[in-house]
Design a protein around this nucleic acid. Structure first.
Lengths: 164, 164
DNA sequence: TATTGTTATACTCTATAACTATA
DNA sequence: TATAGTTATAGAGTATAACAATA
């Protein structure tokens, strides 16, 4: 928060082709959006050919780590709405990556499992998924990158020993 | 990057109600998404009544700082597609917040200006917009917050003296 | 009555391409 | 030919509410 909200005090002689952002450069929401656009662009450049979006791969990954997890709990932890999760899971099912199972002790629920194909898919793409961004030449040093992760984890309440 | 990609090596005795995230906790895209959801939630809790989304207010703010800016340049700098910007600006025009002007020297272009109502709107809400998140009790200290901003700005290429 | 997942609907954001009017 | 903005269309993501089956 080094900038003032008063545009007059923040205005350098402005180039026609430039656009002053002022305090917007210190808006967390704006910065997060720019960062996310950049991450998305890089994801599709590097991994566009695997045929899944980042959010979709994340779901498969979490199923890999939590076989039999309940669909609603999965949606809750990934901050996805239940209705949307239903569509995603149905899609995975149609592609043969995920199996749905109704437990006897609560027949309202749905437990999720990767199929062998789903498991193979995760094993084949996990390393690329988790490391593609790191391997890029970055504006951040390794130490800065680690620091950024720590701060974001803390901001969203995913401490180093929480949320596992 | 402290976690392994091998789920076996990362599995604590798992609670039925918990969901292991494993390496996903170190995925920049995932962290950015969680952070953005949180920022969005807070925005609507604090400022839902002003009737604009964060992105919309950002556009008005930038028009406030750059009167007469070209619509396409604005879209480019804010990382919004031209087609989408057209709709937003038409909306603002209908609400009486923005005026569109065709310059004589290039009659293909559109230059944008806030109306007096638009200017008043920005002045009335800018402080709340830029400070509501800061005023919240946060999991981050003031120093950590500043650090997070610096790192995000550097990551997206908005250095402390760039992008103004 | 409450909960789990489903369906339906709608709105935003995004992406693309075709179009116009200018240059 | 190229550019600025527009329009149309489609897809993904999200939000909400109503619903069936089950608890």
């Amino acid at each position: 928060m080094t900038r003032t909200l008063d545009p007059e005090r923040d205005s350098a002689p402005r180039d026609e082709r430039d656009v002053a952002l002022g305090a917007l450069s210190d808006s967390l929401g704006f910065l997060l959006r720019l960062a996310q656009v950049q991450v998305f662009d890089r994801f599709f450049e590097d991994l566009g050919q695997i045929g899944l979006r980042p959010g979709e791969f994340s779901v498969l990954w979490v199923l890999h780590l939590n076989p039999g997890v309940r669909q609603g709990l999965l949606a809750q932890r990934l901050r996805v709405k239940r209705a949307h999760m239903t569509k995603m899971i149905r899609d995975f099912e149609a592609r043969g990556l995920v199996e749905r199972r109704t437990p006897e002790h609560d027949r309202r629920a749905v437990e999720l499992l990767l199929t062998p194909e789903g498991t193979a898919f995760v094993r084949d793409h996990a390393e690329a998924f988790f490391t593609h961004d790191i391997r890029r030449p970055s504006t951040l040093t390794e130490a800065e990158r680690a620091q950024l992760f720590t701060l974001l984890q803390k901001y969203v309440g995913l401490g180093p020993r929480e949320g596992r």
